[in-house]
Structures are given as structure tokens and as C-alpha cells.
Amino acid sequence: MSSRVNPVDDTQLPWNEVELESRLRAVSDARYHDRHPFNVRMHKGDLSPDELRRWIVNRFHYQRHIPVKDAHILAKFDTPALRRTWLRRIQDHDGVRDGEGGIERWLRLGEAAGIDRERLTSGAEVLPGVRLAVDGYVNFCRLRPLLEAVAASLTELSAPGLMRTRIEAFEQHYPWIEADGLTYFRTRIEQGGRDGGEALALVKAWARTREQQERAVAALAFKCDVLWSLLDAVERGEPDASGGAP
């Protein structure tokens, strides 16, 4: 009789929490949109006013859908405590009352860059590629399990560093944008760090099997692809009906 013990297949063993966090952060380090050529050019001061305004207009389409995707996630929670925590994210963007919140602050960024509110809110200039990326993210949060929807939000872990870089770049290279317009970026430094930490704690608590952990990592990679695709569309621009540049 053989006494040989079958080896353990460690490809199926769950990672410990340290390894899981390391793998999640590695995704952001490698694939977060701060590395996208458009963002690199933005932070080096190489964007023209028209390019920067095109980004502000199209990124607003993403910003206004953040509370929508968060509402889909909120509906999946089964305890009041978790719903209260996630509700704060919606309030951060929508505000508790008119004239408050991240969407309002983005509108003020647009005004500081010479874009009136009607132009931003009409959505008329939103590029098809941007619409597709944003729709993909909203539907992911609506249709995928709670763990994956929350894991996709972990790009927040990288947001504070990006916001600091962006503030410095705007102050140095784009002084024609009024300083008050940068309030959105300043606010997101604290909010992003807090939100990312809360979401990371949930993912680490919920992802107990290797399959769940791999799905969480894949969800974060998907979100990075959404942000990258959005910038691909903005970088490229698309011809208008007459064949000219937007």
C-alpha cells in the first residue's frame, strides 16, 4: 500500500487577506487610468484648452452616473448599517440639498473652464465611446453580485494620489481655470481614501474562497478598463456629422 499523500492544489486555496489586498492593489498600480496617455499629457500641461474642456464635458457623463451605480449597489445590501454607509456615497455626489455635492462641484469646474451648465447637462457632446463605457459600468453594478460590484469601486484606493497630482498640474499648467473650480478634486482626496478603505474591508471580509477572490480582482480590473476606455474615447475624439473634429 502506498503511503504517498496527494499534494495540495494550492491554486485553489484562498489567499490570506494580506495577499488579497496586495493583488488588488497591484491591479490598480498597473492599470489605473493615471497611466493613460491622456492623463499623462494632462498632468504634464500638454493639453490644449479645447482638449481639457472635451475631457470635462465627457467626464461629467461619468460623474453624473456615479450615484446611479451606487444606488444599484445600495439596493443589494441586506442590513440598515451597510445601506447607511453606502447612502453617504450617493449624498456625497448628489448633495443633501440643492447646490451641494460632487456633481455640483463638477459643474463649477466646468464653469471655471468656461463651460456653461447647460452645455454640460445637455449631454449633447458626450462621445459614443464614453456612453458605452459608462453604461457598461452601471450595468455591471446592476447585474453582478454584490461582492463584484463593491470590488469594482476599489479604484477609489488610487484616487487620493491622482487628485493631488491633478491639483498640482492644474495650478501649474492651467492657470486660466479659476481656482475655485478645483474644489471637486480637493474634496475627493479625503472622500476617496475613506470610501476605498471601507470597500476594501468589505471585499476582504466577503471574499473567502479563491473563486470569490479572483472574481473581486477581475471586477477591479474591469473598472480600470472602464476608466481607460473612457479616456481612449476622449483622447481620440470622434468626427461630427460633417466629418470634422468635435
Rank of each mutant, 00 (worst) to 15 (best):
residue 226 V to C: 05
residue 77 F to T: 06
residue 218 A to T: 08
residue 85 T to P: 00
residue 147 L to E: 07
residue 178 E to T: 09
residue 186 R to M: 07
residue 23 R to Q: 15
residue 186 R to G: 10
residue 136 G to V: 02
residue 229 S to C: 05
residue 238 E to W: 05
residue 154 L to F: 06
residue 64 R to D: 11
residue 222 F to I: 06
residue 223 K to Q: 07
residue 244 G to P: 01
residue 59 R to T: 15
residue 35 R to I: 11
residue 138 V to E: 06
residue 77 F to Q: 08
residue 217 V to I: 15
residue 69 K to T: 13
residue 39 N to L: 15
residue 139 N to F: 09
residue 167 I to N: 04
residue 5 V to L: 10
residue 127 L to I: 08
residue 57 V to R: 07
residue 130 V to D: 03
residue 218 A to L: 09
residue 18 V to S: 15
residue 184 Y to C: 01
residue 215 R to P: 03
residue 50 D to L: 15
residue 14 P to E: 10
residue 14 P to H: 09
residue 163 M to G: 03
residue 127 L to H: 08
residue 170 F to R: 01
residue 140 F to H: 05
residue 30 A to H: 10
residue 164 R to Q: 12
residue 219 A to I: 00
residue 246 P to T: 09
residue 73 I to L: 10
residue 58 N to H: 13
residue 5 V to A: 11
residue 57 V to A: 00
residue 89 R to E: 07
residue 137 Y to G: 02
residue 133 A to Q: 01
residue 153 S to Y: 04
residue 26 A to Q: 14
residue 132 L to M: 12
residue 39 N to M: 15
residue 104 E to N: 11
residue 83 R to I: 11
residue 183 T to A: 15
residue 104 E to G: 04
residue 99 G to H: 04
residue 187 T to S: 09
residue 25 R to G: 11
residue 204 K to P: 03
residue 117 R to N: 06
residue 135 D to T: 11
residue 170 F to W: 06
residue 43 H to Q: 14
residue 137 Y to K: 03
residue 138 V to N: 00
residue 142 R to L: 11
residue 66 I to Y: 06
residue 19 E to I: 10
residue 60 F to N: 13
residue 138 V to A: 09
residue 166 R to L: 11
residue 173 H to N: 11
residue 216 A to D: 07
residue 183 T to S: 13
residue 213 Q to V: 09
residue 62 Y to Q: 04
residue 24 L to H: 07
residue 134 V to F: 04
residue 202 L to P: 05
residue 119 R to Q: 13
residue 66 I to C: 04
residue 156 E to I: 06
residue 211 E to R: 14
residue 125 E to I: 03
residue 84 R to T: 13
residue 224 C to V: 05
residue 182 L to K: 05
residue 187 T to F: 09
residue 238 E to P: 02
residue 181 G to R: 05
residue 29 D to F: 15
residue 126 V to I: 09
residue 217 V to T: 08
residue 9 D to F: 10
residue 48 S to P: 13
residue 88 R to Y: 08
residue 191 Q to H: 01
residue 20 L to C: 04
residue 200 L to E: 09
residue 101 G to Q: 01
